[in-house]
């Protein structure tokens, strides 16, 4: 079992999210997160779906997804070396005594304060799940009132895109750039 990031390019039509979500349910998968937004092609949306599963079972669900008429292309980019990000908002309890400590932590994580009230602050953070999780753990001590996370969006590294909309004889595989470290981990 491992976390897989599936990227689906889908027609931007009513009901498509339902079709995709229903397929995961039917095949017994729990979607850990799903993020949807516009893609580079007009009329197509891009979904990033994170699921837990064995390589073979995820491959089966990928193929089932590909069968949906409104799904143009699905790629499992887990193995390809990817950049994954999510955005989170935390509403943290704060007092005059704790405010500066919170600010320090936020600064270390290159996060931002986006709202301040008398007894709380709203923190905005971007990064991979690990980073968001660690900031959450650190802020938890101060008391967290509310959490909102977008779920993962992801993209394969390198020049090639994982997604080919028009049929080509060979599927373009994303090239993994050797030595490319995730420089913005924090």
């Amino acid at each position: 079992m491992a976390k897989h990031s599936l990227i689906a390019l889908v027609e931007d039509r009513p009901g498509v999210l339902n079709r995709v979500a229903s397929l995961f349910r039917r095949r017994g998968f729990n979607i850990e997160s799903i993020a949807v937004g516009h893609s580079e092609t007009p009329g197509l949306s891009r979904m990033t779906i994170v699921v837990d599963g064995t390589a073979t079972s995820v491959e089966q669900v990928r193929k089932q997804l590909d069968k949906l008429i409104d799904v143009v292309k699905v790629t499992d980019i887990t193995e390809d070396g990817l950049v994954a990000r999510e955005l989170a908002l935390f509403k943290v309890k704060s007092t005059s005594a704790t405010r500066s400590e919170i600010l320090q932590i936020v600064d270390i994580f290159r996060a931002n304060i986006v709202d301040v009230a008398s007894d709380s602050m709203m923190v905005e953070v971007t990064g991979d799940e690990d980073k968001v999780d660690s900031l959450f753990r650190l802020l938890k001590g101060f008391g967290i009132r509310e959490v909102a996370r977008t779920g993962r969006i992801a993209m394969a590294r390198g020049a090639g895109g994982p997604i080919v909309v028009e049929e080509k004889p060979k599927r373009a595989r994303p090239k993994r750039v050797k030595g490319a470290e995730e420089i913005s981990n924090l």
């Binding site: 889908v10 027609e11 949906l68 008429i69 409104d70 799904v71 143009v72 292309k73 909309v165 028009e166 049929e167």
Partner: peptide, 8 residues
């Protein structure tokens, strides 16, 4: 003609 980019 039918043009379904998700169905070929």
């Amino acid at each position: 003609k039918v043009n379904l980019r998700g169905y070929k």
